[in-house]
């Protein structure tokens, strides 16, 4: 019924069946390459030098670093497309109570994992991203300082907590949260091999981006691609509003939408106020997401 014979629905069916499986193969490669990298990476001392050694000195370090980067990015991008497709098709209505919220939360954790990876590069962009994150969370009234110290610490320990989250807490928590959503832990061999081959070819032929040393001059510094929109907003809006309140409101709307829709009753039975609210909430979320994508594209091409 969901995949009626319309072109849009056929595309959606393809997105929902192939992309997540491809994403899963990217996740496995990401975990494996990350495991290899942990043998040399150290989150203390001169982290930038350590990363540069991995890239230029350690045998095949450049390959594992690039494989880890590409597979992590691909996994999160595919999960985002998968979530957007499900949201657009309103499939969250079919999920048992709480599962949509759990999956959206796990997607947020995936983005946080990418962000900690961005910090752990130890270059100028990573150090600045860490400081900005620390100052935004630290600026939350009453609990900010304490909350911030749970995620990141200033000074010589700057990379230590992001390292713990990136390598241990977040992967374990994400795998735990998505365990019931994944029907089979291993995707079909064809998809697994295709994904692995594509990512390995990328890692072989595309060189890692040049990292800016922390003390080098840089006229402008960009955050990770998914925070470029926030970086632009931070130029004009107060940090708490742009960095905490607006993202939290958006996330809150995405999380409560299935509950509002369920509370509004079945379609065609009665037209309750909640059903109208849920319809407008859905449109509002789509509009805000679209605007954020435009803002991100603008920042990516013309600077934040």
């Amino acid at each position: 019924m969901l995949f009626a014979n319309k072109p849009g629905n056929r595309i959606s069916a393809g997105i929902s069946s192939y992309l997540p499986r491809l994403g899963l193969s990217a996740l496995f490669l990401c975990l494996l390459s990350g495991l290899v990298l942990t043998f040399y990476y150290r989150p203390t001392g001169n982290v930038f030098q350590n990363v540069e050694e991995i890239t230029t000195l350690v045998p095949y370090g450049w390959f594992f670093r690039q494989l880890h980067f590409a597979s992590g990015q691909l996994f999160v991008i595919l999960m985002l497309i998968h979530a957007v497709d499900h949201f657009h098709q309103k499939r969250y209505r079919l999920y048992p109570e709480g599962q949509w919220q759990r999956l959206v939360f796990s997607l947020c954790l995936c983005f946080y994992t990418l962000f900690t990876g961005f910090i752990l590069k130890g270059d100028k962009e990573g150090v600045f991203a860490a400081r900005i994150f620390m100052n935004i969370t630290g600026g939350i009234p009453l609990v900010g300082k304490r909350l911030s110290s749970l995620f990141i610490l200033p000074g010589e320990d700057l990379f230590f907590l992001p390292y713990l989250y990136h390598c241990f807490f977040l992967p374990i928590l994400i795998l735990y949260l998505i365990r019931t959503h994944i029907r089979k832990w291993f995707p079909k061999y064809g998809i697994l091999y295709t994904g692995a081959a594509g990512l390995c070819l990328y890692a072989l032929f595309v060189k890692p981006f040049m990292d800016i040393p922390p003390d080098a001059f840089a006229a402008s510094v960009k955050g990770p691609w998914f925070f470029l929109g926030v970086q632009t907003l931070l130029k004009t809006l107060p940090a708490i509003l742009a960095g905490i309140v607006l993202p939290a409101l958006f996330l809150g709307c995405v999380l409560i939408l299935p509950s509002v829709e369920k509370a509004g009753g079945k379609p065609g039975v009665e037209k309750s106020g909640l059903r109208i609210i849920s319809r407008y909430l859905h449109r509002l979320i789509v509009l805000v997401f679209f605007l954020y994508v435009l803002l991100t594209l603008k920042a990516a091409f013309w600077g934040p």
């Binding site: 600045f128 400081r131 900005i132 620390m134 100052n135 935004i136 001059f217 840089a218 006229a219 510094v221 931070l234 940090a239």
Partner: peptide
Amino acid sequence: AKCPHLGCTVN
């Protein structure tokens, strides 16, 4: 050199 906004190093 720390920017009082969000802590980046000013040039």
